[in-house]
């Protein structure tokens, strides 16, 4: 197996939201990946300066193509480039997909609880997609999947249409929590995710779900604490922190 840096070609770009873009990459020789993995992307300036950042894979298909969805941090070094500059036909240096821990395994029959803050939905979307297309004979194909997705506003939701379609499956449940702006007529006013709302819209500890939490570090930190307080076993909770102080769903002003 060859590892290290490889050259991927950008074969498609889709504006996901006003501040996020999905890049479709072709990585010659790639034969699928595990749902939840990430790649490292390396940018090089003409003077030799390089910057490396990690991005989760959003897609879950077998071939040599991958989707990444990148949220722009306005003062960021790499994300604005990926969101605004990169064009179809460009080449990017990529390492991976890597990571064998924060992955969903179709052989695991456990119910799955996914909890996303903002762009943290990306690897969880890969898990939902892998679940939807899993071999019906694999134990995980029949597992119930729930996604709790905390997001700023309706306009900031990634993969909107596909999430709606996935949620039509009796096995899949999608709950959106709007933190700053809720859609008109929604029952819950916008506001941070709190521990009671988290408990009310996630699988219970008694159901012993495999839990995946992903988002900015502060979000993951808070949610993981709440889950443990609610009785989930720490060994059932897998986390992927994206860094940054971001906005914590609770406690912090």
């Amino acid at each position: 197996m060859r590892t290290g840096w490889n050259v991927a070609e950008v074969i498609g770009v889709t504006q996901e939201t006003p501040t996020a873009r999905t890049l479709r990459l072709r990585l010659p020789g790639l034969a699928g990946h595990r749902a939840g993995q990430h790649v490292d992307v390396r940018l090089s300036a003409p003077d030799g300066y390089t910057a490396v950042r990690s991005y989760s894979v959003a897609s879950a298909w077998p071939g040599d193509e991958l989707d990444l969805t990148v949220e722009e941090l306005s003062d960021g070094e790499v994300s604005p480039y990926l969101v605004h500059q990169v064009a179809v036909g460009d080449r990017l240096e990529v390492r991976g997909p890597v990571g064998g821990w924060f992955v969903w395994d179709p052989a695991d029959p456990s119910p799955v609880q996914l909890i996303a803050g903002g762009s943290g939905v990306v690897p969880l979307m890969a898990m939902l997609r892998a679940h939807a297309t899993a071999d019906p004979r694999s134990p995980g194909a029949a597992a119930p999947f729930r996604l709790l997705y905390s997001v700023r506003s309706p306009a900031a939701v990634y993969y909107r249409a596909e999430l709606d379609a996935l949620a039509r499956s009796p096995l899949v449940d999608v709950t959106l929590v709007y933190t700053r702006e809720a859609p008109p007529g929604s029952r819950r006013p916008p506001g941070r995710l709190e521990a009671p709302a988290l408990a009310a819209s996630t699988l219970t500890p008694a159901e012993n779900p495999a839990v995946f939490v992903c988002g900015a570090t502060a979000f993951v930190e808070t949610v993981a604490d709440w889950l443990i307080e609610a009785g989930h076993s720490a060994s059932r909770i897998k986390t992927e922190r994206y860094g940054g102080t971001g906005t914590s769903p609770g406690t912090r002003p």
Partner: peptide, 10 residues
């Protein structure tokens, strides 16, 4: 079983 092959870029 169950898992897709690891990436094997050429």
């Amino acid at each position: 079983g169950s898992q897709p092959n690891p990436p094997q870029p050429t």
